[in-house]
Nucleic acid binder design. Structure first.
Lengths: 143, 143
DNA sequence: CTAATACCTTACCTTCCTTATCAGGTTAGA
DNA sequence: TCTAACCTGATAAGGAAGGTAAGGTATTAG
């Protein structure tokens, strides 16, 4: 299991927003892209999904930007995945219109696997991710 | 999470072999493909992986075929996945040669997610899958 | 020893998804 | 009214997944 670029970028962008949430500062797209090394036009599309998913709010115009809609502790990785790339956690397969018994068994396994992942991602918050990046930075710079 | 066709076919083929394991009967490719509706040339490649992974044994020549190398109860879904499509359970990403702190945090999350999946798949045996398909068949035919 | 059967291997093709990029549009502050 | 910044839809380019083809090797029947 590897996160797609889309999901990877979404998480990085949200870490940036989480970092600036305490001061309620709007962060604009280019700032995020510069800090996290993300192609801006691509992130734009991703931010649109995060907005539709109710995770970020966007303000247009000069001095506009993005901000989280709620505390980083209230945003789980599950929320992020469902907004940015719902297919990761869904079993959207409906191969034949006539499912065999093995089709059904396999489908059930997939669903159970998804449940495990959802459960796992549900318990990871943006706050936690942010605090871990800060730790990592400290370690890096304190050599 | 959806299993790829490769993995789907691998599991179906192994269910067929599990069904015939008690009688130690060799099952040939076309029989599997007919029963499970799988393109034969494609399954051939998959069987080759399963063979290299030590899950099946192949016998060439007239009246040849495939057979499991051990009891269906001793083959886990994790074994199957590692043989047929190892990438599913591995975090092979090594994007930049210079990883940022968020790269590392995300990588760790992926690894932990993989652990959860491995743990889950490790506890599902071919025997279990076979018994469930039989149950399903019974339900289907007993209407 | 020859023919038939069935597995083996590599290479190739085609289609679709992901990852972008582009262009034109809308909103809002100075 | 000009400019910064978000919005939206269309359009490439690349690679991976699913599937096909062709030639090869091993085993057994006769």
């Amino acid at each position: 299991m590897i996160f797609s670029a889309k999901l990877d970028y979404a998480i990085k962008a949200l870490i940036e927003l989480a970092r600036n949430f305490e001061s309620r500062r709007l962060v604009n797209l280019n700032e995020i892209c510069d800090n996290q090394n993300i192609p801006s036009q691509f992130l734009l599309q991703i931010m649109s999904r995060l907005k539709n998913g109710g995770i970020v709010e966007s303000i247009r115009g000069v001095s506009g930007g993005y901000i989280l809609t709620r505390y980083p502790s209230k945003i789980s990785l599950k929320d992020v995945i469902l907004a940015a790339e719902p297919s990761v956690l869904k079993n959207t397969k409906q191969a034949a219109n006539k499912k065999s018994s093995s089709d059904i068994v396999i489908e059930n396994i997939c669903n159970q696997g998804n449940e495990k992942l959802i459960e796992f991602f549900e318990n990871i918050s943006l706050e936690e991710l942010l605090s871990k990046t800060i730790e990592k930075n400290n370690i890096t710079y304190s050599i």
